[in-house]
Write a protein that binds this DNA or RNA. Sequence first.
DNA 1: GTCTATACCCGGATAGAC
DNA 2: GTCTATCCGGGTATAGAC
Lengths: 172, 172
Amino acid sequence: MSRRDEVIDAAERILEAEGLDAVTMRRLAAELGMQAPSLYKHVKDKAEIEAALQERALRQQAAVLGDAVDLQALAVAYRRWALEHPGLYVVSAERPLHRGLLAPGIEDAAVAPLMRVAGGDADLVRALWGLAHGLVALELAGRFPDGTDVGAAWDAGIKAFSGGRRRRSTSR
Amino acid sequence: MSRRDEVIDAAERILEAEGLDAVTMRRLAAELGMQAPSLYKHVKDKAEIEAALQERALRQQAAVLGDAVDLQALAVAYRRWALEHPGLYVVSAERPLHRGLLAPGIEDAAVAPLMRVAGGDADLVRALWGLAHGLVALELAGRFPDGTDVGAAWDAGIKAFSGGRRRRSTSR
DNA sequence: GTCTATACCCGGATAGAC
DNA sequence: GTCTATCCGGGTATAGAC
């Protein structure tokens, strides 16, 4: 593992533990037991770090969603990964993407599993994506009152997209 | 109109024209032709300004959505207001709410119209809310490729929530 | 109610010694 | 590849004169 990867690891740790604003060059250096200027021997600038975090997020998302066999499983996987990696989720979904610094095609790869499940209907994919992102974003932002059964809301959404046919619980 | 309202007006103008990060005390003072310290004669601190912007956003949203008679109209109104006030939308939907500084009940009031249309099913309301917020958030964040017919995605989502019964276009 | 001056903190980033 | 020293810019906010 390169020294650069250790920098990105540290950034991810801080991101998840203290939020995006806490990921500063100084804080990052402290996490690694060095001084801030030393970081520039491993990365060009802060944008490179942010891009690396977005790339990790998109890669993980693609991998996790790729295993889902149907809509229900996809929804569960989507929500689960987001709640387990809220920092990575936000950085990849609500921040401007550093497209020029990302591996080509990686953005599409993260959405591809949705395409598969939606049977090739691009509009339906986007609606599904909107539903999933919206529910996650609202939950992470603390928009639902305490005690809300968010899983039940997911079920209601999935049921709508299944044409009211399926019925299995997502709650936990 | 009080001098305080002029400050909030200026903040909203900057927010929509240059984004949230541009709303600083210095920039705000410049917009009003005064020096930054003078602002503190009109508002207590920056949090008060942010809260005032969130309150405007929630109030407008409640008003605009309140007129919608059905799901289709609600969706159109939701997307339309968001695209016309992206700054206010983001500040009220993706930023932590200054709940202690907001008028009581205003948060609920902005979602109440959804409740009406969803026929009292709380889970369905949240799914609907997720769909709407997700589509708007993805569109504002530039997640859909250029040329994407986002209206068609809305139609697909609405159709799903209508049980596949209705069919009228949202595109523009 | 406006101003000037200023304190204070924080950010990203560079130069140059070792 | 690490350090110290430092630059530069930006933010919120206060004190006190007018």
